[in-house]
């Protein structure tokens, strides 16, 4: 891997949450340079994530003049545990409560929901929050409200 290619691709923003990059979210899995070709491997967050086509186009644009192949892999399946610490900080700054990590959740068998015990309000920090809807403005988020400051906010749901 060449550092320059990797950094160019890693800086591609997520089309739906542009404050984080595809590297922050763990969507970017690999960048390989094979002669004049660059092979970029990505994985979708959700099966139907409509951002994947845009991400593929943006990756090609990030490497102008290069012969770029974007490969999509499904396995191992994406998990919110792959969101980096930098990514979690950026999400919180954008007032999107980051997901719980699997080691912070109650253990659950595969295929069952891993529920957060409480989500801290990204506006005021209060743990006194309530889930309004498990499905939010994008597939990866749920909608919450803080009882302390009254603000609604997005929570990146654990998967």
């Amino acid at each position: 891997m060449t550092r320059g290619e990797y950094e160019a691709v890693a800086a591609v923003p997520d089309p739906e949450i542009p404050t984080v990059t595809i590297e922050d979210l763990g969507i970017l899995r690999d960048v390989e340079v094979e002669g004049s070709r660059v092979v970029v491997t990505i994985t979708p967050t959700y099966s139907g994530c409509p951002a994947m086509d845009t991400i593929r186009t943006d990756i090609r644009r990030a490497l102008p003049g290069r012969d770029v192949e974007v490969r999509t892999v499904l396995s191992p399946a994406w998990t919110t545990d792959w969101i980096t610490d930098a990514g979690r900080e950026k999400l919180a700054k954008a007032r999107i409560a980051p997901p719980w990590r699997s080691d912070q959740r109650l253990s659950a068998p595969p295929g069952t929901l891993m529920l957060s015990i409480s989500v801290r309000c990204p506006n005021c920090g209060s743990p006194d929050t309530t889930e309004l809807s498990r499905f939010g403005s994008t597939a990866c988020k749920s909608l919450w409200r803080c009882r302390a400051c009254g603000d609604p906010f997005d929570h990146f749901k654990a998967i």
Partner: peptide
């Protein structure tokens, strides 16, 4: 690989 990916989402649908 498809079933493993889809299973995570389906848990939310069932719930």
């Amino acid at each position: 690989e498809i079933a493993d990916k889809a299973a995570k989402e389906v848990a939310y649908h069932v719930d």
